[in-house]
Nucleic acid binder design. Structure first.
Lengths: 141, 141
DNA sequence: GGCCTAATCTTGAACGATTCCAGAAAATCC
DNA sequence: GGATTTTCTGGAATCGTTCAAGATTAGGCC
């Protein structure tokens, strides 16, 4: 089955209409994890020709709301998206060059959801970001 | 000793010049943890009269760089600042109203710095954000 | 106390990611 | 195939933050 078909099925299962921009965005994010909106727009345009930036913003929001994409936005950076959802993994980010890598959750199964003192909050997600230097940047400062 | 004196000493120890805007910003953040820049500007102006927003932005950056303040910027929100630094505590944030509460680090002393697989990164900070609903908002949705 | 120099503040404009709006186009249901 | 509702286009607007140039001030020294 072609990946386009796979994406179409994913969209339908999420109750979303299937449009060319949506398939293209889904494809772009799956092929380039942790990319920012601008790069996604470029990838979609390379695929389909002219597409408005607004369409891409709308699609990204729709797919994120539907749970097909996850939006991550580390402090001081623009929004980035990834297609790996539902496993509550975390991220390491290089302070110097900004690369992002995935990190599996350290605490086993349904993990980090317990704070030492939750202040009465009903917590539904624990987001962990490890900050540091990637191998390349820590070699050449 | 007056708190103004305390702030002056903190600034000097950090190698920073003591100016009225700086003392006022430090005071505002210590009295209102997790406040955004706009509120800090308002607090400083209530204290000193007219102060340019640019001065506050500069001061916040200087104090953050010097380690007197910590900047936090949860996904999709503007920057916020707190004066509790150096203990690597974390935050719970309400998805509905945006309140932020402090959470001590769950893992004891020098804690969360170990990722399950660090991909060769030299990690210096682990930032944890618990997302959920605060007591008030989970009562009245 | 007064002077010098670098750091800091004022003023006003610029920037960039994101959102808002109104109308045109197209996907799904019947 | 047509109606209906969602989605996309095009363009302008918003808002937190930053840039730039000149005026002011803090801190060290005589």
């Amino acid at each position: 089955m072609s990946t386009a078909k796979t994406h179409e099925i994913l969209l339908r299962e999420a109750g979303l209409r299937v449009t060319r921009p949506r398939v293209a965005v889904l494809d772009a994010v799956r092929r380039h994890p942790h990319t920012d909106t601008e790069s996604i727009i470029a990838a979609v345009r390379a695929d389909l020709g002219e597409v408005s930036h607004q369409a891409v913003y709308d699609v990204l929001r729709a797919l994120t709301t539907a749970g097909l994409l996850r939006r991550i936005q580390p402090a001081g950076t623009q929004a980035r998206y990834e297609a790996r959802v539902g496993d509550n993994h975390h991220h390491v980010i290089c302070r110097s060059c900004g690369v992002i890598a995935d990190v599996d959750c350290a605490t086993g199964e349904a993990p980090c959801l317990t704070a030492s003192d939750d202040h009465g909050f009903r917590i539904d997600e624990a987001e962990v970001i490890y900050w540091g230097l990637c191998p390349d940047c820590s070699k050449a400062p």
